[in-house]
Design a protein around this nucleic acid. Structure first.
Lengths: 135, 135
DNA sequence: TTCATGCTTGACGCTTACGTAAACGTAAAG
DNA sequence: CTTTACGTTTACGTAAGCGTCAAGCATGAA
């Protein structure tokens, strides 16, 4: 049955912090908020691949402007147990909701990028005029 | 010379608040932060099209997770005066910077949408299994 | 005149998301 | 054995982004 000889890598809090460029405080704070649940070896935190993935998801969520509470809900969807029908229906509902939000944000981004392109064009025009106008 | 007979519409603070579904407090706060600069008729605020546009931009920026400080910089780029060369170059720099950020966010969104699609698939599979398994 | 509406300016309160010590434990290195 | 590195908890501080009174002015209708 080839019982997976993957080393099951782990990380210290400092390693994770360095990798994702956040402070220890931040990582501990996320644990406080239930976003991470590292193993304890004595009192020391040991992070498994699962935590690492979740941290990455949290940070991505942050870049998207979600609050930690919202992120918690989203991230928890990722490894939700099969569960009962009600749960699944609720999950599908959540997914629809989040998707709607994300698509709105995507539209916002497209619009902003177009606006920026306009400003840039104007900018370059002005710059041209300036450089032609005065020797 | 057809000197534009556009009514040059204006709005009260309550009208703007209703239109964009924010509170008066929020609008005044944005003014405090220099994002809006309504005319004063007596002590009362009168909002012109420019303010209305800027409010929309601010809210869009918020949806994208920018801080009000960042939003201020972005929005101010939109109606920057031609100015001197240094200014223009700085502006172009800013544009590049913001564009990079936005593109990162767009990637984040794409990834998240794909993740959600996976979760949804799994969800529907589980739901199917459940409905087949027990009568 | 009185009342309701809508506006104004403070000013304190609250939540989020951490920053920043303080004070302590542990384990390897010099 | 002491230093150094790395970890821990507890707890107060803070900046952003408003919410929420309180108290007051102006104006038109009843």
């Amino acid at each position: 049955m080839h019982n997976s000889q993957v080393p099951a890598e782990t990380w210290s809090i400092a390693e994770l912090a360095a990798e994702y460029d956040v402070t220890l405080r931040t990582i501990r704070f996320y644990e406080d908020r239930g976003l991470l649940t590292p193993e304890r070896r004595g009192t020391t935190r040991v992070y498994h691949p699962r935590d690492r993935v979740r941290l990455a998801l949290v940070l991505r969520g942050k870049r998207l402007g979600f609050s930690l509470d919202e992120i918690a809900k989203i991230v928890d969807m990722y490894d939700a147990e099969p569960g009962e029908e009600g749960q699944l229906v609720y999950l599908l509902d959540q997914i629809t909701h989040r998707r709607t939000e994300l698509e709105q944000r995507r539209r916002d981004i497209e619009e902003t990028l177009q606006d920026l392109a306009q400003v840039e064009t104007r900018c370059r025009t002005d710059l041209e005029a300036l450089r032609n106008g005065q020797t």
